[in-house]
Design a protein around this nucleic acid. Structure first.
Length: 581
RNA sequence: GCUCUUGUAGUUCAAUGGAUAGAACUGCGGACUUCUAAGCCGUUAAUGUUGGUUCGAUUCCAACCGAGAGCACCA
């Protein structure tokens, strides 16, 4: 709770006490002190009177009027300009001489001083980095930055699946490719990675075709067997030719990911790989198996399973019939490795919600095997990225590649800037940052727990509630500031209504950030920034900061404060600010 | 079939146990000899259905209808 809301709450509770309300009743009362959505009704409001109507046995409006009288005596007039009772609500108007701090830190008890590890993005080498990964990366970056402004000591990790059956499918799929293995120097990394993605899709297609003939058909059995053999070859590195192609393909993919992280503005502290977590996970599971009170058991085909049903969860395979550890066993290894690397106080893993059930199982198992690690694991899941109603699937190739989307957005942005007086280099760099802002903001402006329907055409328009809209407000301020250089500064007249509202909106930033931190909800910050930028644009259209070659100091200060908050806000969301556009 | 998530303007999203359910896009209509029009101003339009709890439900609960995800050797 932030100072002002806290101050109001404390005084409301004093009001209850002097009215002889019992401590038990006070305990039960849950009233709200929050920002007023409608700025015309004040800066903050409380529903105190509505909630306490019963214990006072009075009409809410009577309580509200009494409370206002009391608060007017108690609260500092230098902070509270006006307190009034309207329709049983109590509204607070603040003096609003708010000073912008350069780097807002919101101290939050769940974060301050804690070591928090964030794992997100998790693309798999030899498969395309698609907009689902973009979504996870965007959310993870914003959530980790929220942790950082809340006072936590944070690390960023990505876990990349360089072992497992998906790779076997890619490697097996190679034999059906019509184009040759693209290891010529003339071929770009992008095209090389695209080739691998296509091999994966081709492999899956062949697998699906075989499956259509029936799971008992000879063809399906043959295909499954071939893929399993390939999986084993990759796992134990027993085939030189496979090793060669695999190592090269893995390298290309990682290189491509690195390029994307640079564009997106993520810097990971460490990468974990399945090829390393797999043997460790296998070892931990096998060791537990030797114990008399082992939590694992033998399933069909001698697979090693965890019977989740005993705990209201799914039963899942940890080691498959061929003795290869699955995703589940690898998660155990990963948890141990993470903890050994950096003794975190909390480990947050961000994935799509299709993995919710698996994480319930693996977190349960980790807690049983390593209680002090398991109790610190938190799974944060986001909705799926859908393409206008359809599920995206990298298996079938029904995806939008991350880099292609960024490129398309860049062209759209570049097109808008083509007549500006900027160098070619500037245009390129700006259009890239604007493109990323557009993509990231469209993800962050909504509740990430729900699915996001992605409409590429609409996203390319770069208009309305968007990242570029906010960047544009900053650019306009930069432009004004530049024009003020060398001009006389005069103390101007009072704010117009637009200026007043803009000024009153600035103060809300800290409060919004606190809520965003508290609820892992970057969308609060995103929505706020739209509100702030929109108020700035209204202000801008009705007020002249520079008039007759003279700069109105009051208005210029307001612009500078607005720019600071917009910049801080975008930074928290992991979106870059541009100087010009 | 079982489990979980979800249903708000034509579309994509907000919000909330309580003040007139907010935006954006689209449509229609404006302003501008103006510091960047990726902008500003106005306008039409929505809580799936039926019950329940409550002083008050779009929000909580139940059922139904619709959508999505998961449910043993993929991740």
């Amino acid at each position: 709770m932030l100072p002002i809301a806290d101050l109001i709450k404390t005084n409301c509770i004093s009001f209850l006490k002097i009215n002889n309300i019992s401590d038990e009743d006070i305990e039960k009362i849950k009233f709200v002190v929050d920002i007023n959505k409608d700025i015309d009704k004040g800066d903050m409001y409380s529903n105190f009177a509505l909630v306490t109507s019963k214990v006072f046995n009075q009409k809410p409006i009577v309580i509200a009027i009494n409370l206002v009288e009391y608060l007017n005596q108690q609260l500092d007039k230098n902070i509270f300009k006006k307190i009034e009772a309207v329709d049983a609500y109590v509204n607070f108007y603040l003096v609003n001489n708010f000073e912008v701090s350069k780097n807002t830190i919101i101290y939050h008890k769940d974060f301050t001083g804690k070591k928090i590890a964030y794992e997100y993005t998790d693309p798999n080498p030899m498969k395309e980095f698609h907009i689902g990964h973009l979504m996870a990366n965007t959310i993870g970056e914003a959530v980790s930055r929220l942790g950082s402004i809340a006072g936590a000591n944070i690390k960023r990790y990505s876990y990349q699946g360089d072992a497992g059956r998906h790779l076997a499918v890619t490697m097996w799929g190679l034999r059906f490719m019509e184009t040759p293995w693209p290891d010529a120097d003339s071929i770009s990394i992008t095209d090389k990675v695209k080739f691998l993605g296509l091999a994966y899709v081709t492999g899956n297609k062949k697998l699906a075709e075989a499956k259509e003939k029936g799971e008992e058909s000879d063809e399906y059995k043959k295909v499954i067997s071939e893929i399993e053999i390939m999986n084993k070859k990759i796992y134990d590195r027993s085939d030189e030719e496979v090793n060669l192609l695999y190592d090269l393909g893995r390298e290309w993919s990682l290189q491509k990911f690195e390029e994307l992280y640079e564009i997106l503005g993520t810097k990971f502290d460490h990468y974990f790989f399945e090829s390393i977590t797999a043997p460790l996970g296998l070892e931990i599971v096998k060791e537990n198996l030797t114990k008399s009170d082992t939590i694992f058991s033998h399933g069909d085909n001698d697979a090693i399973i965890f019977k989740g049903e005993d705990y209201g969860l799914h039963t899942r395979v940890f080691i498959n019939a061929k003795g290869i550890p699955t995703y589940e066993a690898k998660e155990i290894g990963l948890a141990k490795m993470k903890y050994d690397l950096w003794n975190f106080d909390e480990s947050v893993v961000i994935t799509a919600n299709e993995q919710n059930e698996v994480f319930k199982v693996t977190n349960k198992v980790i807690t049983m095997l390593m209680p002090d690690i398991g109790s610190k694991m938190k799974h944060l899941s986001h909705g799926m990225m859908k393409l206008v109603g359809e599920k995206m699937s990298s298996r079938t190739g029904k995806i939008i590649a991350g880099d292609e989307l960024v490129e398309d957005m860049m062209s759209a942005s570049y097109e808008k800037m083509k007549d500006r007086d900027l160098t070619e280099e500037e245009k390129k760099s700006i259009s890239c940052d604007v493109a990323v802002a557009g993509i990231k903001f469209s993800i962050l402006k909504q509740n990430f727990r729900k699915d996001i329907v992605f409409d590429k055409e609409k996203s390319l328009s770069l208009e309305g509630d968007s990242g570029p809209y906010i960047q544009y407000a900053i650019v306009r301020i930069n432009s004004i500031v530049k024009k003020t250089e060398g001009l006389d500064i005069v103390s101007g007249k009072d704010f117009s209504i637009e200026g007043e509202n803009l000024n009153r909106t600035l103060w809300r930033y800290d409060h919004i950030c606190y809520k965003a931190v508290d609820e892992f909800a970057p969308q609060y910050v995103a929505q706020y920034l739209i509100d702030l930028a929109s108020r700035f644009n209204s202000f801008y259209s009705k007020n002249k900061i520079i008039e007759d070659e003279k700069v109105n100091k009051k208005l210029l200060d307001l612009c500078l404060k607005t720019r600071d908050i917009l910049t801080q806000g975008l930074t928290v969301l992991g979106i870059r600010v541009v100087e010009k556009m």
